[in-house]
Structure formats: structure tokens, C-alpha cells
Computed example of a mutant assay.
Amino acid sequence: MLDATDTPVFAPATMQRSHGAGTLAVKHSGGRSRIDRLHQSGNAKIRIPRTHGHALEAVLINTSGGITGGDTLKWSLDAGSHTHTIVTTQACERIYRSTGETGMQQANIRLGDGSSLFWLPQETILFDRGRFRRELDVNVSGNACFLGLEILVLGREAMGETVDEGHFHDRWRIRRDGDLVHADDLRFVIAPENDMGGPARLGKNRAIATLVSVTPEDAESLDLKVTAVRTLLRDTEGGASRIGEDGKGKLVVRIAAPSSYLLRKQLIPVIRLFLGDHAMPKVWNL
């Protein structure tokens, strides 16, 4: 019981953090790519829908509905030799407002010789005052083929939201047989004193995409693909470059657009070009 001179003391409220981890290994069996090992914990779930193609399609799900400060999400993917895998997400990943901590997502991907893996998550939406760090580490063996995509959208367009403050750091490392072939760090520190609309930053754009293709193709084949991508991106704020020599080259595509709708419209034909005989993930068409 308190008297008039006592001051009540309340313990500070602590928010529960979400932590999830999912592992998927794919093997070649009976002429098809099949699940070899699957493990999921916390809010990380993996679903394998039925498809008519010869690639295994995996859908990653964050059941917490988004990421905020202190949350962690880890994915591990192992594409065995001569397998074909397409990985996507059930929906856009939402990065909610943080009180100071940074949310974290890590993806570790390994490709065996003769395999292909297409990493095609849907958009990541950074809310105002969101803080997020994302890491993508890929190890490619032999003549495997990897296609990686990441999309960032600043604010919820339907709500008319702008991002006045926030932090975003995207880190890519791709290696072939142990040799580093691609390193990319993209970092935005958004604050009132930083002009994100300046010509050296995003200008009028609020959606950006990076796509990297690492294949054993020769320089001539890659140059033909670059030409095809540039044709698709004509009259857009996008571009494509081929970097590297025969058998160790890569193709990098970057696109910026005022909205995620316009970005998708420009991006999907480019993805289909790289997918070849494989179909777009079903969730991208919903």
C-alpha cells in the first residue's frame, strides 16, 4: 500500500521479438528436383506448391507479418547438383517502424554443379522509421547458374506514405568455386537533412530493383542477353551491364521507378527473359 510520499515504479515494457529460421535442401531424383531436407522454426515457414514445370518452387513465408527492430529471419537453401529451384515469397515483406533496433534478414544459398536457383522474393516495403539490414550470401559451384533479385519500396503507396526517417542496408556476396564474383553494398540513411529526392539519389523514384545473373555462359551469349534486356528497358530508368570474362561473367540489371506498380511492369519481362523455359512463380501472378 502506498502513502502520499511513495512513488510507484513501473518496469519498462519490452516488446516480444520474432525469430525464424528455415532450411531447404533440394536433390535430383527420378528426373525431377525434389525435397531432400526441410526444416522450419519460429515464424519462418516454407511451402512447396504443386507445379507442372520441372523446377521445384519454394514459397517462403514470414508468419509474423513483417519485421521490426530486433527481429531476425534466416533462410538456408541448398540446391544439389543438377537440380532446378525457384524461390519466392508469399507476399511483400514489410519493415515496420522501429524504436531503435535494426531488423535482420539473412539468406545463405549454395548451388551444386549443374544446378540452377532463381532467388525471386517479392518487394520489401520500408515503412517510415523502419530499420533493416539484409544479407545475401551465395556460393556457386562448377557450371551452376544463379539469378538473384531484390526490390525495395519506400513507403506504402496506397496510404500516401513517405519515408522521412529510416535505415536500410543491403549486402550481397556471390562466390563461384570460392572466388568472389560479386560484392554489392547499398545503404540508405534517410533523415530530414538528407535529400532523397536529389539527382544523385533517387529523384522522383520510390521503388528500386537489383537483379544479378551469374552463369557459365561465354561473353558473346551474355552480350546478347544484355542487348535484349536494354531493349526491354528502353524509355525506363533502368540499365544492364555485363562484367567479367568467358565462363566467369555476370550480368547486373538495375531499375528505378516512381512506384512498385510501374517497377513490376518493367521488371517482369526481364525476369521472364532470364527464366527461359521456367514459369514465373504463381504468387507473382495473384
Rank of each mutant, 00 (worst) to 15 (best):
L2D: 07
D3M: 04
A4H: 13
P12K: 10
Q16T: 15
A25E: 12
V26R: 02
S29M: 10
G31L: 06
G31S: 10
D36H: 11
R37G: 06
G42F: 08
N43D: 11
I46R: 00
R50M: 04
R50E: 11
G53W: 02
G53F: 02
H54E: 14
H54S: 13
A55F: 04
A58H: 03
N62K: 06
G65I: 07
G69R: 03
D71G: 03
T72A: 09
W75Q: 05
H84V: 07
T88G: 05
T88I: 04
E93S: 14
E101R: 07
E101I: 00
E101V: 01
A107L: 13
I109F: 03
G112M: 10
G112L: 07
W119V: 00
T124C: 11
D128F: 11
G130C: 07
G130L: 06
G130I: 10
R131F: 03
D137T: 12
N139G: 02
S141Q: 14
F146C: 12
I151C: 01
V153Q: 13
L154F: 15
L154M: 13
E157W: 03
E157M: 13
G160H: 04
E161C: 06
D164T: 07
G166N: 09
H169S: 13
V181R: 12
H182K: 00
N194R: 12
D195S: 06
M196T: 14
A200H: 09
A209M: 13
A209Y: 09
V212R: 02
V214N: 00
E217Y: 06
L222N: 13
D223E: 14
T227S: 15
E237L: 14
G238Q: 06
G239A: 07
A240L: 07
A240W: 05
K248L: 08
G249H: 02
K250Y: 11
V253F: 02
I255N: 06
A256C: 13
S260F: 01
Y261L: 12
L263N: 03
K265P: 00
V270P: 07
V270Q: 05
R272D: 09
R272L: 08
G276C: 01
G276K: 05
W284R: 03
N285F: 01
